[in-house]
Design a protein around this nucleic acid. Structure first.
Lengths: 216, 216, 216, 216
DNA sequence: ACCGGCGGGACGCCCCGTTTCT
DNA sequence: AGAAACGGGGCGTCCCGCCGGT
């Protein structure tokens, strides 16, 4: 073959990488392919050998972006911080200020819901492992933990979006803080709150929240 | 007024109304003014006497949409259901399936964050009364309740968006359910858990909104 | 009648006046009626009672603008300066810098040529008295003087336009100067230059330039 | 180059060529890009790979149109006619009737004055060589000849425009004729007209015009 | 076979001249 | 006389097909 082996892959990856930044920063609909390719130091000519359409790029970009987000959070949690560290990172001013490097869900969810079926499947497939990972750090049986993980993730996504939309920095920070507190409470006192009250031990969370455990 | 009194207002309101539907359904960037006006049975010529630009329409539409959402939820809560009824409605399959008539935050938040300052201010100004209203149905001191209301709202917004993006109906419903459970837990057992530990009684929520009747 | 008598006329005149400024400044095609009316402190509603179309306004505006230009130059020449004063004024930096108050021909001639027949007739009818007036200050029989007046006027129009188009002030001024010199030579030494060589005496010109022939 | 060598250049030239016709015929502001491109058998999609904006096209079109006009006149003068032939051609009924193939200055000067700086610089840069060429066929020292050339060109431009604007063919022709006479007088008897009286011999002019007054 | 990039049209927002209603 | 509404058109950008050089 004419080109260095792997060059094609490299180009493709680069396009996806830049796309994941631009889409998160400006939105999917508002981002044009030409500008995107230029940002990746290509011209549109480089696009169609790799993707059949913009929507295919969206699909692949979602898969990749979620994979990266997943591994980023995974590392953070395994580095010792547990879920709390992840939550604090997610709901931080830095994350709020830099959507282009942040969670794809927070940056694009409503737009994802309007994409093709394939893209939405890719989103779901990228989200589930992430949810499972979060669930593993939560107490309770597997299914219950998974449900809780969905809720906690929903809380984080929503709170971050609200904070980003609010033009008042002080208020935005407040929203983030409250999101952290609520996420930790959810993680700490899973559904059993009243019934059993015993088994929390949210692997990695809890520290700060452990002693009290509210529920009595 | 030169025209039949109120005609101008009627047109303006009609444009805003259709805009709020289309923007929620298709996204702001993806919605063109021409199509929007046609949907309102006008041509583009009818737009510029009322608005100077699309972004001004976005601003006014946000204000109006939030006002309506606010009053809708308000009615629901005062009708006796309390916060729980509102949460159940928000995280229902119907709401999930009809973004065009649903919560503007759930449908457009990431795009709102990319709008002009004026639009974001309008968003904030429309959101706060809503948050305050929710807070009133929560226990604890005013500030704490407000913080909790932000978190609960974030949870609802995020969960609804996730459910909308997921192409598997069963899983989407699961996300909604878990959102409801978590929202109720948050509302039920506010932070005071340790401090006071006593009478939560989330005015209107609590167990499953049990005996009481909160409102007012 | 409802309105003070003459009010209608006043409005009409005001529209024409502002139009003659805007058209000269920005060009006819590039000037919109809405902006024009706003500049005259009206809304478009004030336009159609007075004119049936933009092109009719153009026609009337040409007649009026030429009438004014005519009388301005007439005054100048009768004030004692003669043709030379008029030429010097016409080809001055001030006139070059302010097309909106200057000669309509210099500002719009190519556009006039593309207007309706009616507009062009108005232009012609406005131009001829002006040419005749200039011709009267020129020597020779009436027809010859008229021909010369056309040429001198053409020279002035073209030179002013060239100067306006040139972005280098020094060069533009040079063009104006040369235009003045050439105009005076034409006025001074009419066609008879060789044949008769006798009685120029370009009524009103020459004074300053008469003994001249400078070069020597 | 990726395409058949010169294909891009060909398209670009074609666009410029058609633009130079349309702009001269209808005016710059009154000519739309879509119609222009269609006239060149393209769609608008073909425009932006070559030009970044309409105003850039204007700039390039001015440069090209002046270059062509220059060479056309140059050929004419070198073919033996001298300046007189050029003047007669310029102020001919044919030229008057076909602005789209004629002098860009006569067709667009007032609009050129309203274009961007870059366009006006292009105009100036295209005009100067032309003026220099005309100056070479004039007697007297170089600078004086250049000044005279400006004036003669101004005279031609203005006279042609006036003739084009006048709806009466007979009068228009009269204006052209008088323009020719005056131009020849200027060229024939440069400033020194009286002093020396003898040496006109405006390289190529004069012959036919010297003895007198021709017209009719 | 990657990639550059021309070219096709549809469509984006905005503004035009005009008509209509008051 | 004011202003809403119409609909066409302004320029510019969009996504994409396809050609052709490397």
């Amino acid at each position: 073959m004419r080109y260095k082996a792997g060059r094609k892959e490299a180009t493709r990856e680069r396009i996806i990488e830049v796309a994941s930044q631009q889409f998160r920063k400006q939105g999917i609909a508002a981002t044009g392919l030409a500008g995107l390719l230029k940002k990746a130091d290509f011209t549109i000519g480089a696009f169609y050998p790799h993707f059949t359409s913009k929507s295919q790029l969206v699909t692949e970009m979602l898969a990749e972006a979620l994979r990266l987000e997943h591994s980023k959070v995974c590392q953070l949690m395994q580095a010792g911080g547990g879920l709390e560290a992840a939550v604090r990172m997610y709901l931080s001013s830095e994350h709020m200020a830099h959507p282009e490097e942040g969670c794809p869900s927070a940056a694009m969810l409503p737009e994802v819901a309007r994409q093709t079926k394939a893209s939405r499947v890719a989103y779901k497939d990228g989200l589930l492992p992430f949810i499972d990972m979060v669930a593993e750090s939560l107490p309770g049986d597997k299914e219950a933990a998974k449900g809780l993980a969905f809720a906690i993730f929903g809380l984080m996504v929503g709170s971050l979006q609200i904070a980003r939309a609010i033009p008042e920095p002080a208020l935005a920070d407040r929203v983030l803080e409250e999101g952290i507190k609520a996420a930790m409470r959810l993680a700490d006192a899973p559904e059993s709150s009243v019934a059993t009250g015993t088994k929390k031990e949210a692997r990695g969370l809890s520290r700060r929240s452990s002693p009290r455990s509210k529920s009595k």
